[in-house]
Amino acid sequence: MTAAAEKEVVFDRIPAPTWRWLGVNEVRVPESVLREAPALRLVTIPRGETRDMVVVCRTEAALELRAELGEGAEFRLTRVRLAPADVRCADAVKVTLAKDARLSYTAVELSGARAADLLDVNLAGDGSGADVAVFYFAGGQQRLDMNYEIHQRGRRTEAVLDVQGGLSGRAEKIFRGTLDFVRGAAGSVGREREAVTLLSPDVVNRSAPLMLSGEAEVDGRHAASVGRLDEEKLFYLTSRGLSPDDARRLVVLAAAAPVLDRIADEALVAEIRAAMEGRLSHG
C-alpha cells in the first residue's frame, strides 16, 4: 500500500465546523502515524516561575505536550520541526494558564511529507496571555495541516496569533486559527494575523481564521493576506543585481526573521536557516 492510499484518521476538529467542500473541518493524519500512543510530556510550572523549553523534531514522531502554568508563571516554548521531507509527524501542544501566567510559543515548521500540528491554549486565569508566532515553509509534495485554538476564558486575557508562511512546488497547507472569547472573558483582547506567500502556481493554500465570541466586552480582530511576492519588493531587489530566484529567497527568509529572532539558540537558528535555504533551492 502506498503512503498516499493509507487510511487516514481524524486527529482533531475545528470548534465550529463549516461546509465540507472546503475541507477544513477535520485535521486528518495517516493511521500509522498514530498507531502508537504519542510520546507524552507533562510540564508543570509552579507559581511565579519561568521555564524555557525547546522541542526539536528530526524524525517521524507523534508528540503530545501538556503544560499547566501556575499563577504568574511563564512558559517560553519553542517547537521546531526539521525532519526530512519524507516523514510524517503529528504533534499536539495543550497549555492551560492560571491568573497572570504567560505563554510565549514559537514554532517553525519546515518538514514532513505529512505534518499535523495542534495548539490548544486555555487562558483560564484572569490576566493570562499567549503570544504565538509561527513560521512555516512547505515545498515539493508536502502537506501541512495546522489547527491552533486560543480559548480566552479569564478576564483581561490577551492573545496574539501571528503566522507567516510560504508555499512552493505542489505543497498543500491548511491553517486554522481560532480566537474563542468565552462568556465572562470581559476586557480580553485577541489579535490574529496570517500572511501567506505563494511561490508556485501548483500550491494549495487554505486558511480558516475563526473568531468566536460569547462575550461583548472584548476586542477581537483578525486579518489574513494570501498572494504572491510583492512585485515592488522583487523589482527593487532585482534592480540591485539579485537574480529573481535570489530575490524570492531573500524575501521569504526576511518573513521568517521575526520568528527566528525569538529563538535564543544560535546553532538551532543556523540549522533552520540552512534547512530553509535547501527548501527554497529545491522547491
Partner: peptide, 28 residues
C-alpha cells in the same frame, strides 16, 4: 454578553497569481 457573534471564514486558494485579503472585527 447574552448574545453571540461568530465569524467562520475560509479561503481556499489554488492559484499563486492571486491577491486575497480578509479582515474581521468582533467587539462592543
Amino acid at each position: 454578553s447574552e448574545s453571540r457573534a461568530d465569524t467562520i471564514p475560509v479561503m481556499d486558494i489554488r492559484e499563486d497569481d492571486a491577491d486575497i485579503g480578509h479582515e474581521a472585527k468582533i467587539g462592543r
